[in-house]
Each structure stands twice: as structure tokens, then as C-alpha cells.
């Protein structure tokens, strides 16, 4: 069989991601689509460390490490410079975790989205501040344990709907993706590369240590998140929604939750509550998928 993705690797092995890191798959897949005429900026996030310490880097692309809340504005600045220097073709990407996107970086994200700056904004979402040791973020789902939402007081707030927030900016392209479906992500990026303006890519990237899951289950979890409807995978092009990974018969959320230690304290009624939250959200999205 022929590989479904290009063989070229723009990410070297030897990086510092944990075993089974979803963010590693997210980056590796994305780079295959983005290609070598691409520049990155990272805020503080797992990838700050994964990339490697001075004087090393696992990326074979220019990369500017930046402050936590500055991703989108920094990417806008790089893009403006490239335009001023007559190198408008280069793809400029901000690559941030969920904390840097949902929480501390949301202002800059909103600013760049509103200006419709011609950049990619990637959020690899592992649903908590993993790099600092698993503290809850606005992306942490209802019911989850983190070090700041201990079992006794597990997270009672639902995950912030960052995709809806971005959609409210009427950006030309946005998509969700799961590391379980690399071809889907690849296709979206290849398409989005040709679209001028702001592009938001939200990738679910399971985190074995943070989710208290087995490292070998990363892809399985990323797949179950989609199959249960917890993380629907779709794109929005010029306001038009399309579900790219269809889930005609959704699996119960329990199948996803039970593989993760961060949910193991949940009682039957808590699981039912999560199922309710997911069903509601899915129904809402389904309407948009049907136009």
C-alpha cells in the first residue's frame, strides 16, 4: 500500500514529547501538509519543551518562541513583515495549546481573527495546562480531574466553545480535527493553505500523563472522542459547516471516559450528565451540518 501522507518529515525524531503524545502526531501530520515554505511561532506550551533545548530544535522550519498570550499577534507581525519584504507566499502559523488559545491568548486570537490576518492559528488541545503539570483550563471538559480541580471538586464547568467564538468572527476557514484522522487533517490544511485570511485549526491531541491514560491509547482516544460526538470533526468554509468525519451512530461517552483516569471518579449520574452535555452540543452542531 502507498502511504496516504507524504514521506517527507519536517520534524526530527529525538524531540522531548512524552510517550504517546498527541501533540507530536498533530505537529508531524500538519507539517506534512504545510510543507517547507512555512514559519511558526509558539507561545509557552508543551511544544516549547518538545521542540528541544538550546542549541537544538526538532523542527526544520523557522520558529520563533514567544510569550504565552502573544501567538496570534506575533504571527500577524511575521506575516506583515513577509508581505513587506515581498515574501507573501510563505505560510505563517501560530501553534498554541489550549491554555494559550482558550484562555490567556484569546484576546490576540480574537484581534487577528477580526482583522482577518492571513495566518494559520493552530490550537492543539490537550484540555488542560499540561506543561505546568495538569491544571484546568477553559478547554478542560466537565467532569475532569486536574490538579486544580481535584476529585472532590472535579470540573463543574463545560468546555469553552472556542470554535463558536472563532466562528463569530466570520473567518474564511476553520476546522476541527483529531489526531486519529491524519488524512482528514492533512486534506483540510492543504485546502486551507490556498485560502487567504484567517484560518483556525483546532486539533484534539490526547495527553497520556494529563488524561491518566495509557500512551498506546492516544489514537484510540482521539478516535473515540469523535465517535462519541464529544469532539465532532468538521470544517466551516465561508460560514458553511460540513462534518468531515461522519458519526451516524454515536458511541456512548462512557466508552471514551472509562479509558481515562481523569474521569474515573465519576458516578453514573455524572456520566449521564456528560452524555447530556454532549448530546445537546451535538444536536446543535448537527443543525449547522445540515445547513
Amino acid at each position: 500500500m502507498k502511504p496516504t501522507l507524504p514521506l517527507d518529515e519536517l520534524m526530527s525524531p529525538g524531540h522531548l514529547a512524552c510517550q504517546g503524545c498527541g501533540a507530536g502526531i498533530a505537529m508531524r501530520t500538519s507539517l506534512k501538509a504545510l510543507g517547507h515554505d512555512t514559519m511558526f511561532t509558539f507561545p509557552a506550551c508543551c511544544w516549547t519543551v518538545i521542540d528541544g533545548p538550546f542549541p537544538y530544535s526538532c523542527l526544520e522550519l523557522p520558529l520563533l518562541h514567544m510569550a504565552f498570550e502573544a501567538t496570534a499577534a506575533t504571527a500577524s507581525g511575521i506575516k506583515a513583515a513577509m508581505r513587506a519584504l515581498g515574501k507573501d507566499k510563505t505560510t505563517i502559523c501560530g501553534w498554541a495549546g489550549d491554555g494559550g488559545t482558550f484562555d490567556i491568548g484569546i484576546q490576540a486570537l480574537s484581534g487577528a481573527a477580526e482583522r482577518n490576518d492571513d495566518i494559520f492559528y493552530f490550537c492543539y488541545d490537550n484540555e488542560a495546562y499540561m506543561n505546568t503539570g495538569i491544571q484546568r483550563s477553559g478547554a478542560t471538559p466537565y467532569g475532569a480531574w486536574t490538579t486544580t480541580t481535584p476529585v472532590k471538586h472535579f470540573k463543574k464547568e463545560v468546555k469553552k466553545s472556542i470554535d463558536d467564538i472563532v466562528a463569530a468572527h466570520k473567518v474564511p476557514y476553520q476546522a476541527t480535527a483529531s489526531v486519529a484522522y491524519p488524512e482528514d487533517l492533512y486534506k483540510k490544511l492543504v485546502k486551507a493553505k490556498e485560502i487567504r485570511g484567517f484560518k483556525f485549526i483546532h486539533i484534539l491531541a490526547p495527553c497520556p500523563p494529563g488524561w491518566k491514560a495509557r500512551p498506546e491509547d492516544t489514537v484510540k482516544l482521539a478516535r473515540l472522542a469523535v465517535q462519541t460526538g464529544i469532539f465532532p470533526v468538521y470544517e466551516v468554509e465561508a460560514g458553511k459547516y460540513a462534518q468531515t468525519m461522519k458519526t451516524p451512530s454515536r458511541k456512548p461517552v462512557l466508552e471514551y471516559l472509562k479509558l481515562q483516569g481523569r474521569f474515573k471518579h465519576l458516578k453514573e449520574e455524572d456520566v449521564a450528565e456528560i452524555q447530556k452535555i454532549v448530546d445537546l452540543r451535538y444536536a446543535e452542531l448537527e443543525k449547522r451540518f445540515q445547513g
Binding site: 528541544g52 542549541p55 530544535s57
Partner: peptide, 16 residues
Amino acid sequence: MVQSLRSMAANPTGSW
């Protein structure tokens, strides 16, 4: 300034 000069391929992680 802090600038990368080599790939992380200099860091064999097989020992993990």
C-alpha cells in the same frame, strides 16, 4: 541570541 543550530536528532530518545 538563543538560536537552534542542530536538530534534535542529536538526542537519541530510545533510552526512554
